[in-house]
Simulated scan of single mutants.
Amino acid sequence: MKKRSILSLALAVLMSALVVGQTFAATEASVGENRRLYGEVVAVGEDSLTIRTPTGEEQTFLVDGATRFRSKEGELSGLDAIQVGMKVFVLPADSDVARIVLVLPDDFDPGRWSKGSGTVVSVDAAAGSLTLATDGGGEISLLVDENTRFVGGIAGLEALETGLRIGYAAREDENGNLVAGVLAARPQEKVRPARGTVMTVSLENGTFTLQTVSGEEKIYQVNENTRFRSKDGSLAGLADLQVGMVAIVVAADAGGETATAQVIAAGNPEDMPSFDQRARGQVTSVNDRSFTLVTAQEETFTFVVDESTRFLSASGAVQGLADLQSGDRVVVGAQEGDGGELIARLVAVNPSNP
């Protein structure tokens, strides 16, 4: 029974990381969080860059083949696109190696940006504005202009509907109005995640069969768009999927006997982590070294976070405790410390749901 419960939690953690929606907190507005560092580039080397923060401190980051470079227009070619004088965010700030370097507009002023999330109350497409009921209980009006980015499955202001939960990053213009730089919503496409054990694999047909935890057998088709994930990165395609592996499959509900797999995450059962405490619920508070959640059964748990805690989210936006917010839905696997405290080893984060 214990082995089965551990397997169920591991599957739940993995599924939460896979089907998590778009992040509500836009990177461009994340100022002062200890997982992101803002500053101006003062030096660029062959495999490094140095930035100076607003407080005058300088920090050098190494870059490697896994470092991603982005700007408002999209992906950049690499370190060769970075120039002295550029304003950037570097993630994570507490590492010697940069994983993401985000190039900001020349007129970016961190003091003029704010971020948050809420529910759409009204939309005035003609005026280019919308009103949100914020999570804090108030209301906020946002303007939209040609520079506003829409992410998370929404095409534009006209696509926003009353009742939709969105996140925003906004700046104050010269008239004191808040102009949205980013509006992010959860993707609207419904998918059907399933978890279970791989029973058959057919390379000839490009399919595999999954026996779910409820005993149902499902057949999935794999194509060139199917993404494969595993803990060690060894799962690159259908040929690497083995009978007996534990898997999470995310597929669009096509209404037929065979569904096309969008994401497959799999591993061997013995690789699944062992936890003393497992919990699923909504974050109610976040402190410097811990966070508290309440479950659907109204149980309250407080988890300590240390350097070994892993945070998982599909977008990669939640990289540490500083990125966690009240209202986030999480699945946590923890071990008991010497003093009886619960130390979170794995935290899978799913942004707040409506």
Rank of each mutant, 00 (worst) to 15 (best):
K3I: 10
R4Y: 04
R4A: 12
L9P: 06
L9F: 07
L11V: 05
A17T: 08
T23A: 15
G32Y: 04
N34S: 12
L37H: 01
L37V: 14
G39D: 07
E40Q: 13
V41M: 02
V42Q: 07
V42K: 12
L49P: 09
P54T: 07
T55I: 05
G56P: 12
E57T: 04
T60Q: 11
L62Y: 03
G74Q: 07
E75W: 00
L76R: 10
L79T: 13
Q83Y: 01
V84F: 04
F89A: 00
V90F: 00
P92S: 08
P92R: 07
D94I: 00
A98N: 06
D109G: 01
G118R: 10
G118T: 11
V123D: 13
A127G: 13
S129N: 10
L130Q: 08
E139C: 02
I140M: 15
V144S: 07
F150E: 13
G153P: 10
I154A: 13
E158D: 15
L160G: 13
L164T: 15
A170C: 12
D173F: 02
D173H: 05
G176W: 01
G181H: 09
Q188S: 14
T197N: 09
V198C: 05
F208T: 09
F208H: 11
Q211T: 14
K218M: 13
Y220L: 09
Y220Q: 09
V222C: 04
N223Y: 03
L235C: 10
G237R: 05
G237Q: 06
L238E: 14
L238M: 12
G244Q: 10
V250A: 14
A251Y: 04
G256I: 01
Q262H: 02
Q262P: 00
V263S: 02
N268P: 03
R280M: 12
Q282W: 04
V283F: 08
V286S: 03
R289F: 03
L293T: 07
T300A: 12
T302F: 01
F303H: 08
F303W: 02
D306R: 05
T309G: 03
T309Y: 00
L312E: 12
A317T: 10
G320H: 06
G320M: 04
L324Q: 06
S326M: 03
G339S: 13
L342F: 07
I343D: 01
L346K: 11
A348Y: 04
A348T: 04
V349I: 11
S352P: 02
P354T: 13
